[in-house]
Design a protein around this nucleic acid. Structure first.
Lengths: 346, 346
DNA sequence: ACAATTTGCGCAAACGTTTGCGCATGTCAC
DNA sequence: GTGACATGCGCAAACGTTTGCGCAAATTGT
């Protein structure tokens, strides 16, 4: 009656050892019982009852550090994102964290801030901490480090990836996204298109450009003019690129911004110039954000399938971790089609 | 020449043991040298050089799990937020993660989704994982669990807190925020104010209400009317509360939304009613978000000092962890004044 | 040449688990 | 009464570290 309400239940000092002493059973037996392997190891009813009761009473929680050391399994996975601040990544992180929790894993979070050294640090730290797996939004252009890491522990890339590697990834189908955005602009009657791109070297960016250009070329309409400009997923880039073309002799009648940040910059420039959206100029963006619906006008955009990306990547990783060897049925490089959400900006 | 470029450098199999074998020095010596305690333990120059060289060559990384078991220090801290999705929390998380990284800690992230059971799960998990400390945005109204936890491991609350506890926290000075927002509205000439509140039971909410009411009462202007309505930090709440009062016999001429989400809902309602901001109705919000500047009109708001909160809390926690006992000079319950950012919405 | 001191390093225990193996005792068949 | 098998449980090693203690050899003092 007082053991279960003991006010001084120093929450941390309980161990198999202490329970063993109090119940009179050996540490091994206690361990097996509390691991739920009582039956399996033919531990008697008496023992099982006594031990579970005592564990309950003293609020025993296994030391996952010790367990991890012994079993080499930490039930922890590492997640790197280039900026948890960025709504797209925090959304991904949220999905992944919650999905992973359901599967019995905790997450170690690292923010790489788009810096390769920080990414390297984070990955090394993950290794030292013996994570069971890693989900990463890679920064930088070289897969080297990640490939090395993936020889020690399962790695799944999300959102970004490297060409010519076997590293598994799941990302948006950026080509398709570029294609659909551009087709939408063309369908709406725009004929002088400008794409403002982000980080030039990143695959997502390259794919979007490819989609953009293919859409124009395959449109069958020889009258369409188009250009690609800009460098960097920043609103400065959006602002300056837009300003430049608006003041040039050949201003576009529609802008395809490769990210929300770029779009915001463009929007500012357009407003400064006093142009009306969507009549003077149309705009379409690439990203998710609930705020986009509250802008004036609400922004038409290609939304990335963040939930699917997050869930697919997590499932994939967990399969790699727990799977009885690589199950060959597993496709390791997946891209998921984004979808158009119409605002009134084009 | 080839040991440092060994392609088969199985990144994980290196241990003090293997280095010990290859160098001929004992595990203890290797440990001491690699811990940088060579001098301190009077290890010879030869040994130090050989060992560091070998460790370098084979890219040795200490096993932090084993180290943690032995030293009872994991250099990991747990962070719970009620929704990493929410820009305010992801912003906090970002600040904390990065600040903590600089101090040599990694972070275990848990999303509690505003649910007390999930918070309890997360905290227990943190305990099992032997985190060195915890930073939490508590959900729920009862400090019980967190107080119990804080007897085992340092805990610092952020953003929200409990009255009548000694749990250390650092949060926005919500009273001051409520006060300044309301004073601003009054200064701008509004005379019929409506506050749309969030979670009624939370301290931040209560304090904002108190600030709101005090500002009106202390204004010396008997002509000012005011009311508080709503329940929940959601846009639905914002929308419905606004709709109701706009359709009532006594519509307000200014709205003080207690969060961005609430503000967005209110904004929708106002637009639907065809009212002009700020002439027909003024609006002021409470939160941070870069998007607020891109709305039409840009929203005037009380910005929370997230960076200070994050950094202060982190420093506080680390001091508690590493400090030579509680340094008495330490004030444990801190609130930081938010500041007004003017848009054109009132 | 011998004691005292310093220098350089290793032994072994400990952290809290898990798990292969094996030892008692009890039960049954004959 | 003996062998065979089932039942119930414990011993001890192992995971990779850190660290108190202490021992041997080298150096110094006298």
């Amino acid at each position: 009656m007082d053991s279960e309400t003991d006010p001084e239940a120093m929450t941390s000092k309980e161990s198999l050892q202490t329970i063993s002493e109090r119940t009179g059973y050996s540490v091994s037996t206690v361990s097996r019982v509390l691991a739920g392997k009582g039956e399996q190891y033919r531990i008697g009813r008496r023992a099982i009852e006594t031990i579970t009761a005592e564990a309950q009473a003293c609020n025993y929680r296994p030391d996952l550090i010790a367990k991890g050391l012994r079993t080499r399994k930490t039930n922890t996975i590492g997640l790197t994102v280039p900026g948890i601040d960025n709504p797209f990544f925090s959304n991904l992180a949220s999905i992944i964290t919650n999905h992973l929790k359901g599967l019995g894993y905790n997450i170690l979070l690292a923010d790489t801030m788009e810096a390769e050294e920080m990414e390297a640090d984070a990955l090394n730290s993950f290794l030292s901490r013996k994570v069971d797996g890693i989900i990463a939004v890679p920064v930088g252009e070289s897969p080297e480090m990640l490939e090395r890491i993936s020889r020690s522990v399962p790695v799944v890339l999300i959102d970004r990836y490297f060409p010519d590697t076997t590293l598994p990834y799941v990302c948006t189908d950026n080509y398709y996204g570029g294609l659909s955005a551009t087709r939408h602009l063309i369908r709406k009657g725009y004929r002088n298109l400008l794409a403002i791109q982000g980080v030039l070297t990143s695959m997502p960016n390259k794919e979007r450009v490819r989609g953009f250009e293919d859409a124009v070329r395959n449109s069958g309409d020889k009258g369409i003019r188009y250009a690609v400009t800009g460098d960097g997923f920043s609103s400065e880039n959006g602002y300056e690129s837009t300003m430049k073309v608006l003041e040039s002799g050949n201003p576009p009648d529609a802008i395809f911004a490769f990210s929300t940040t770029i779009m915001l910059g463009a929007l500012t420039a357009i407003r400064e110039k006093g142009l009306k959206i969507p009549d003077d100029i149309g705009i379409i963006s690439f990203d998710n954000n609930r705020f986009l619906d509250y802008l004036d006008p609400p922004i038409t955009r290609i939304e990335q399938p963040a939930p699917q990306i997050g869930r697919t990547a997590t499932d994939m990783l967990v399969k790699m971790i727990e799977g009885s060897q690589m199950e060959d049925s597993m496709e390791g490089q997946i891209s998921i089609r984004p979808f158009l959400v119409e605002g009134r900006s084009c």
